[in-house]
C-alpha cells in the first residue's frame, strides 16, 4: 500500500452547545470553538496505525472548507499526516459536492484507501463516505470498528444495528470510521512545531471545475421544541407511584 487519503472536516467543537440565530438563518458559529470532526480524527488515527504497523504509506489529509480550515489540517499534520490539501471555499458544501471534489483529488493521488468519519457532527448527514465510494465505483465499509488489511483486500468489522458484521472488500475502497475503531492520540508540542514545516497545498475550489451549487434549499433553522419541565421525586416509592399514574407500571 502506498497512499491513504483521510477526510478532515472543520466543525463546531463537540463540547459547544450550539445556538440557533434568532432570525432563523442558521446557527451561531462566530467566536465558537472549532475542531476536527471527532470521527475524522479516528479516521486519521487508523491511517497512522496502518503506517506504524509497517506499511510504507503516505498519508494525505484533505479538507474542504474556509481558509481557517488550515488550522484543522495543521492538527492532522501534527497527529502525523505527511501532507495536506485544502480545497478552499466559503460556500456551504453538500455531501454530494464534497464527494465529487474528493473524487477529483482521488483521481490525482490514486490512493488505495480513503478513510473518512462515519458522520460529521455538524450536519450529522452521514453521506459523504458512501457517496465517494459510489462515484469512484469502489467498495465502501461504513461504520468500521476494526480494519485488517490482507494484501489487496481488507476484512472489516462493522457496527450495525443488529450487532457486529464482518465483510471483505477489495481495495481500493472507502472506509468510514465508527467510534470504537481506535482512540486517537493527543498531539504533543514538538509535533505541532514539526507540522508547521509539512506541506499544505491550498487549492481554489473553482479550479476543480465541479458544480457545487447546493441541491437542497434551507428554508428555516429553528431550535428544537423544549420538553415540559419535570419534577424531582424523593424516593423509589414516589417514583413507582408516579409511573403508575402514567400507566407505565401496573
Amino acid at each position: 500500500m502506498q497512499k491513504i487519503l483521510v477526510g478532515i472536516k472543520r466543525v463546531v467543537d463537540y463540547n459547544v452547545r450550539v445556538r440557533v440565530k434568532p432570525d432563523g438563518s442558521g446557527v451561531v458559529t462566530d467566536g465558537v470553538k472549532m475542531s476536527v470532526n471527532p470521527f475524522d480524527e479516528i479516521a486519521l488515527e487508523e491511517a497512522l496505525r496502518i503506517r506504524e504497523r509497517g506499511e510504507p504509506v503516505e498519508i494525505v489529509a484533505v479538507s474542504i472548507g474556509p481558509d481557517d480550515a488550515q488550522q484543522q489540517l495543521r492538527t492532522a499534520l501534527a497527529m502525523g499526516a505527511d501532507r495536506a490539501i485544502l480545497i478552499k471555499t466559503d460556500q456551504m458544501i453538500e455531501p454530494l459536492a464534497a464527494a465529487k471534489l474528493m473524487l477529483e483529488i482521488i483521481k490525482k493521488e490514486n490512493p488505495e484507501l480513503v478513510i473518512v468519519g462515519k458522520q460529521a457532527i455538524d450536519d450529522d448527514s452521514a453521506q459523504t463516505g458512501p457517496m465517494i465510494a459510489a462515484l469512484w465505483g469502489r467498495p465502501q465499509a461504513t461504520f468500521c470498528s476494526k480494519l485488517d488489511l490482507k494484501g489487496n483486500t481488507a476484512v472489516i468489522l462493522r457496527e450495525v444495528d443488529a450487532g457486529l458484521e464482518t465483510i471483505e472488500i477489495d481495495l481500493p475502497a472507502v472506509i468510514s470510521a465508527d467510534l470504537r475503531l481506535n482512540e486517537p492520540r493527543y498531539v504533543k508540542l514538538p509535533d505541532i512545531m514539526k507540522a508547521k514545516k509539512k506541506p499544505l497545498d491550498v487549492i481554489e475550489i473553482a479550479s476543480l471545475g465541479i458544480d457545487t451549487t447546493p441541491g437542497l434549499k434551507t428554508l428555516l433553522t429553528e431550535p428544537p421544541k423544549p420538553r415540559a419541565k419535570g419534577v424531582m421525586v424523593k424516593d423509589v416509592a414516589e417514583l413507582v407511584d408516579a409511573l403508575k399514574k402514567r400507566g407505565l407500571v401496573s
Partner: peptide, 11 residues
C-alpha cells in the same frame, strides 16, 4: 442537525 440542537427545514 448538531445532535438535535437545531432543526432545519429543507426543500
Amino acid at each position: 442537525i448538531y445532535a438535535g440542537n437545531a432543526i432545519v427545514t429543507l426543500e
